[in-house]
Amino acid sequence: MSRLRLVLFGLGAVGLAVLWVVATTGLPPVGTDVHPYRDAAVAAAAAHATANVVSSINFDQRTFDTLGEETILLASVVAVTTLLRPADDERVEPPDPPPAVLPATRLAGWALLPVTLLVGADVVLHGHLTPGGGFQGGVVLATALHLLYLAGSFPALQWVRPTRWAPLLEPAGSGLFVVVGLAGLVVGAGFTAEFLPPGVLGAPLSSGTVLLLNVVAGVGVGAAVVSLLGQFLRQEIVIGPGAAP
């Protein structure tokens, strides 16, 4: 069975490898200076005063695509929450007392919390100027809260973690994304089109809707990661097998 499977895989892999070689030999070499999409994207980003061209693509030129990405994230959070809810034969227990951690680890966790929150906010708010953006910054923000778990303070994490409103914040992020898109429609620019004044290239308040959508996406992604990690941690720590039915 296992051998047959490997033989089948080998045949498929050889086929794919041959197709791969045939396909890639026809491609232009890596490192050329012919990049028509680059030229078009850079011109469009400059026209809307967005210094970070990658952010301009994600939140201006292909906003509709990013809306789909947000929706995938929302669907994943809903699915994981549904899959990991306590089953009929399980019950929620108070968490065990956390294992002792080194005082240095505890100190590092608490000391890095404000630093990481600040870095996350910086990555979100300067996503239109420097490398970063809502998706990356949202993950950094969510990571900051979970430093408390590494510091051995699960109760503190439960207290500081927005358990109540993280599940509301994620759809709110996606919803506000749609609202900003619809605002473009109302103004007359078109759904998910840029409609705010772009400002001066490189200024903190430039790039129009890109900054706004970065913040909205940062909130949504941060809440999504908090929800996802929260479900897995809850599964590990407070849900246990119940009494035999």
Binding site: D33, R38, A41, V42, A45, T50, N52, T130, P131
Partner: peptide
């Protein structure tokens, strides 16, 4: 250079494909 406008001399040097 990186696809950040104004980072490498205000668009004078080429940037890699941001798409």
């Amino acid at each position: 250079t990186v696809p950040i406008l104004g980072a490498g001399g205000a668009g004078s040097s080429p940037v890699v494909d941001p798409l």
